[in-house]
Design a protein around this nucleic acid. Sequence first.
DNA 1: GCAAGCGATGGCAGCGCTACCATGCGGCAC
DNA 2: GTGCCGCATGGTAGCGCTGCCATCGCTTGC
Lengths: 378, 378
Amino acid sequence: MVDEPHTQSGDLTISDHDAPRKSRSDGRPTIADVAARAGVGAITVSRALRNPQLVSDILRSKIDEAVRALNYVPNLNASALASSRSDVVGVLLPSLTHTVFTDVLRGIYDGGDGTKLHIQLANMRYNAIEEERLITQFLRHKPAGMIVSGIEQTAKSRRMLEMFDGPVVQIMDLTCDPIDQVIGFSHEAAGRRMTEHLIAQGYRRIAFLSGWLSERSNGRLRGFRHAMAAADLDASAKAYSILDVGMEAAMRDLGQSPTPPMLEYATPDTGRVLFRHIREHAPKVDAVFCNNDALALGVLFECLHQGIRVPEDIGIAGFNDLDFMAAAEPALSTVRTHRYRIGHAAITTIRERLNGETPGVRIDDVGCEIMARRSTER
Amino acid sequence: MVDEPHTQSGDLTISDHDAPRKSRSDGRPTIADVAARAGVGAITVSRALRNPQLVSDILRSKIDEAVRALNYVPNLNASALASSRSDVVGVLLPSLTHTVFTDVLRGIYDGGDGTKLHIQLANMRYNAIEEERLITQFLRHKPAGMIVSGIEQTAKSRRMLEMFDGPVVQIMDLTCDPIDQVIGFSHEAAGRRMTEHLIAQGYRRIAFLSGWLSERSNGRLRGFRHAMAAADLDASAKAYSILDVGMEAAMRDLGQSPTPPMLEYATPDTGRVLFRHIREHAPKVDAVFCNNDALALGVLFECLHQGIRVPEDIGIAGFNDLDFMAAAEPALSTVRTHRYRIGHAAITTIRERLNGETPGVRIDDVGCEIMARRSTER
DNA sequence: GCAAGCGATGGCAGCGCTACCATGCGGCAC
DNA sequence: GTGCCGCATGGTAGCGCTGCCATCGCTTGC
């Protein structure tokens, strides 16, 4: 039984007339084509592209010429397969809506600029199970490094990241036991310090306003409560969230997005609704500490609407220092967080680690700043 | 970092005594391991994972069991190499800061959810040359599809995308000659319609305010001028940008980011500065049409500060309908753009095309809505 | 009863690159 | 001269997967 399709006799000359291109290749030049044209070995081309200093000047210039002439584009999938290492950095953020994460992202992109690193981003929607799934997905690409938000990964997520052989940076929060490295700040300290500022300004009946509470928001709330307790104001420390004001219906209406709207529900409109609720049920409240700036802006508008004077009748504080806070009338106090810096530091760390440098600090507290403005100047 | 990932995971009885690991493999189970354990061929495992309906129930369940038992994770780089097709969709946005693009991005991610598509995002900073470079980079991954912003790619970019063998969607604008498909709306029509609304409300001396003018902003400005001309108000049609008010110094200060700050300079503070400039140099202006909502918010705050009544003394209109516009006091008129929908439609189109469906419309105008609110209710 | 058809399965040969050696060569110590 | 080191370069053998057929057993049509 001779079922060899290729008879060995003289079929070296491939006829142009038979089957149209049996090859699985898409016809683009490969590293072998470049090597042939430059009259060198393929591996030398590979080296010339990745570590030019390993190749003599003569060959290097020949290779460069061939690359340009053929318009050669390296196939990163082949490279990643052969070296079991890609140049993709996986980034997991809880939300793509909040300006907070947009700024982080900008820092990451700016820091990754001009390198061969590619960012692959995923939205885990404040959902640890989803995060687990996304980590699994990411690891299939054999990424060069990973950036994840927060410190509350599931046990399985954590195990996967620990086994992952590359730098892992957790961002936006702090922990003394990071998977690998962590860059962020203490939300509890931030909440405590802003509350202390409000108390120092003479406010006594302070309400904490939030949309939905992420783990990090809970940290701020803890800080708020501790500061109030430390000043013997426990009785006045009350937190209000959208759950208190029966906004579920309104939330459902929003749903242009398939996202559970609750997660994204921290808008100025929410701020107005929450503040109306407070005026009705707790008229003696003299300051509101909003879990984010959008809520604070809404509170300001509601005060304008009702003719309530800020900061005389009500103090308003936000969180994050988005750019409208300083421009508001009156300017709104808030906590400036270093989001851009965190993103930038995260990708920079990964670059350094990939270059073989040893990690500096494992735990990097970038802190935050209390921006005391007119809205809390009693 | 764990350096040696479970070399001796006991159960599989790989002889530990022979050659000191010559393999370049990282020791993770491959499709061959799964095939061996399930007692089938490797290709059958591949099929069971990609097109389960092609494999009999019996084998499929055996394979599923083996996958779980071995904790098999497919190597996407190998898959991409073998099939010369990855599951990555490249997305090019001009900015990661503007909420506009954040919303587009959210639409893209939501629409890509639950599929095997991975999004790879790049920030081209309103720079066509940078865009060209990024397209080159992206194509090295042999992406499944591409989404690019706007319609002003360089000739080379355009050629690369035309030669690219996969769906390409241009978004956020319209053209009658798309590379492949385009989903967006006419900025000129939007600018014209909002201007017509202002004129209809009785405003006559209308100023157009902008930070930096992207090609799309220019379209809005053209619409503004046409509408003014059509109403014989040419003489009153004047546009102000940051260049008019010597804000370069302020802009330089901003520079936390390596980005040329001009590109990102559309903040409420800019709105305040521009409006002060207008009050000084053109006190008769009775309405401002802001190229984006952040500027409009700034104008509102400046009016509050100066005691100027809105909408009686000054009408204010923005562009995009970010969530603070409806919540402002008074509520601010604006143009609602369907950013989320555009992103969602873009990725959905790509999914459909990858599933072999033929493109529906090549040019998809999602339109926009004039949101007439109190701030222009004369 | 037999050819043809069909669905399920598997073998083989790449995809384009890089890790791992081997090779060759000039220079230096002895 | 001999041996050895270091450097530039190349050959070979994969990396883990999938495209392309071949195969096999069973059904269908006449």
